[in-house]
Amino acid sequence: MVHRVHERYAMLDGWRGVAALAVVFHHVSHVPVGGPAVMCFFVISGYCITASAEAALRNGMSFWSYMRRRINRIYPPYLFSLLFYISTRIIKLVTTGINDLNRPVIDFIQSATLTQWLTLVVSPATNPIDNPSLFVTAHWSLCYEEQFYLLMGIPLFIATYAQRKNGARDIFKLVWICVALSVVFNLFIDHLSYGLFLEYFAMFGVGCLVYYRLSRLKGNPMRWSIDLLLAMGCIVAMMVTLGSERDWEVTRYDDLMFASGFGLLLIALHRFENWYRRSRASFILGSIGLISYSLYLVHQFNLNIVLAFTDRILPEETPYFVLIGSQIAVHVIVAAAFWFFFERPYLNHGSWVFGKRPVFVLSRSKE
């Protein structure tokens, strides 16, 4: 007989909040911490989507139901953020005469469907943020997220139509295969972005492996093997980076180093989960984590507006760190309003209370 012991992993929401604040801080202060923060998002997404796909298999959910939930969760807020962006650009056109919307029709179609990555397939760029079809450069990561969701749905699709009962094992195999392919792909092509999932799957894969390490694998040898793999990921990525001739240029192996290190940190800090849940930081960071998707969606195209607002209400002698903190606070307030009206209605968890979000469940089986 199998008994399941459930643990709530609230730290994931807290780390999501930290990562979202880091991205905003990157854009308002120009301190380059946004890249590592996005890698943290990828790791967290890898963890959460793997947990979601496994739960869907256990509950007999079909591939189409799984994708409906993903689309319902991601697309409505994203489309509303595009409308928000267009409205701000219209205001900018009226007030300054600068037309940021004078773009090809195909850019609007790709942005509406989150298929901007197709542009890079034809015309690769050094960095995915250099994709000319992006309206908001911060949205580049969503294209990879979309492909990751589709990929993780493949075992569900197979289980639905082939009546296979070992779908969870298929997910585990798929993760290992794609991580290996991603590492090899980036070993040879780390200087160009083609918009394909293999470029960043290793970072998502870290989150997948952390999920299995903390919740599904039984026996210390299996868990320690993942710890060793992540440690090796840090070391190998560092060696590749140090051996690169592109001084000070961030490569995807730098990203893999950050992702692997963050994965090890999640594993190490899991033992402090109960203490964290009782702390005030759990409420504060969890609340920011709750609105992190909205914050990520809308902050970048409001940077100048928020800067002008804080410059107007704050005295000229305001210390720099107070000015930066004030801008971040305004971005959080705007994102909270956006979350309430345009993201909250589409969440898959029913009623949500600010700061009391249901957190991710780790289930560990014991015979």
Score class of each variant (00 low, 15 high):
M239E: 12
T241G: 11
L242T: 08
L242F: 13
L242V: 12
L242M: 14
S244Q: 02
E245L: 04
E245A: 10
R246L: 12
R246S: 12
R246H: 11
R246A: 10
D247M: 15
D247Y: 15
D247V: 15
W248S: 09
E249W: 06
E249M: 09
E249C: 03
V250A: 08
D255I: 06
D255H: 09
D255M: 05
L256C: 10
L256M: 12
L256T: 06
L256I: 09
M257I: 10
M257R: 11
F258P: 00
A259Q: 03
S260D: 11
S260K: 08
S260P: 08
G261Y: 11
G261A: 11
G261F: 13
F262P: 03
G263M: 05
G263I: 04
L264F: 15
L265A: 12
L266R: 08
L266F: 14
I267T: 13
A268Y: 15
A268V: 15
L269R: 07
L269D: 05
H270E: 14
H270S: 13
R271M: 04
R271L: 02
R271V: 14
F272Q: 01
F272M: 01
F272H: 05
F272P: 00
E273Y: 14
E273M: 08
W275L: 14
Y276M: 10
R277G: 14
R278T: 15
R278D: 14
S279P: 05
S279C: 06
R280G: 07
R280D: 00
R280C: 01
A281T: 03
S282N: 13
S282E: 10
F283H: 01
F283A: 01
F283Q: 00
I284T: 11
L285W: 07
L285R: 04
L285P: 09
G286C: 09
G286Q: 13
G286F: 14
G286H: 10
S287R: 13
S287I: 14
I288P: 10
I288H: 14
G289M: 12
L290Y: 13
I291F: 13
S292N: 12
Y293N: 03
S294L: 02
L295G: 09
Y296C: 07
Y296R: 03
L297M: 02
L297A: 02
L297G: 01
L297I: 01
V298T: 02
V298D: 00
H299P: 07
Q300S: 04
Q300E: 06
Q300I: 05
F301P: 02
F301A: 02
N302D: 04
N302G: 04
N302A: 06
L303M: 03
N304L: 04
N304Q: 09
I305V: 15
V306G: 06
V306R: 05
L307N: 11
L307V: 07
A308T: 08
F309K: 07
D311L: 02
D311R: 05
R312H: 02
R312Q: 00
I313P: 00
I313A: 00
I313S: 00
I313K: 01
L314N: 04
P315E: 05
P315Q: 01
P315K: 01
E317G: 15
E317D: 15
E317M: 15
T318G: 06
T318S: 12
P319D: 11
